[in-house]
Design a binder for these strands. Sequence first.
DNA 1: TCCAATCTGATAACGATTATCAAATTTATA
DNA 2: TATAAATTTGATAATCGTTATCAGATTGGA
Lengths: 135, 135
Amino acid sequence: MGKYTTKHRLKIKDFFKSQGRDSFTAGQIHQALTEEGYVIGIATLYRQLASLTREGFIASLQDGAVEKYYYLGWQEDCHNHYHLKCLDCGRLFHLDCSYLQNLESHMKEDHGFIISREESTLYGRCINCSGKERK
Amino acid sequence: MGKYTTKHRLKIKDFFKSQGRDSFTAGQIHQALTEEGYVIGIATLYRQLASLTREGFIASLQDGAVEKYYYLGWQEDCHNHYHLKCLDCGRLFHLDCSYLQNLESHMKEDHGFIISREESTLYGRCINCSGKERK
DNA sequence: TCCAATCTGATAACGATTATCAAATTTATA
DNA sequence: TATAAATTTGATAATCGTTATCAGATTGGA
């Protein structure tokens, strides 16, 4: 995909380039673009997000059940680390940690399981939220 | 929830008790019950699954984006281990492994992140599928 | 410029889940 | 056991994020 260079395609890439490391749902991206007066059909946005994901420009992760998140710069180093997502504040943490690399080796050698870093987000409570009261 | 003991409630509990450790979507459960001639409204099934989950009789995990899985016997020991889900065959592996407990401690002490085991399913390729050809 | 390949947008369709609400069932009480 | 209040049920409409459809617009190469 991505045979033609269209304005929407460029716009979406620019959006990610301008947004650092945060993650967004398709709906959030559509809203952000709309709010700055940029008009794009929701179907087109989904198509381009899928295309850019296939190409490795962005990547998607599951957020709970429903929505997807898209990341900038994934292709550079996000496959080299793990992600921690806080169940309270929703923030995503990018974690370079040799412990996880060892875990990967362990899983492969002792359990025959090849972990996919991109898919294996760890969920829990971040340092800011773990102290607060919880139900 | 679960104030009244209804036949549907008992039936669903029996279903899980008879199914060992596999996980099911609501749709799969509904289909299984229907195939054995048991009639239950889909809304009722969802309600009971939610209720039984709240009570800890079963638990749910995300399967990719959409569906939920429900487990029997979770309350006994599933919160004591991690789950590995194979991206190829879809099977879920229950893994007791001290490595993961150490990982938990490490995350807490060195990164301030409290991992939730129930939520943190690891994804990858299982021992049966990792050898096969892949795209 | 012309044409075939590709992309776009409006909208219908989809699949899983939840909400609605009247009717049926369960439980406690008499 | 009869009664009534609380709870559950089922049919179905609604919801939400996402994908499919398809005619019309855009792109890029000849």
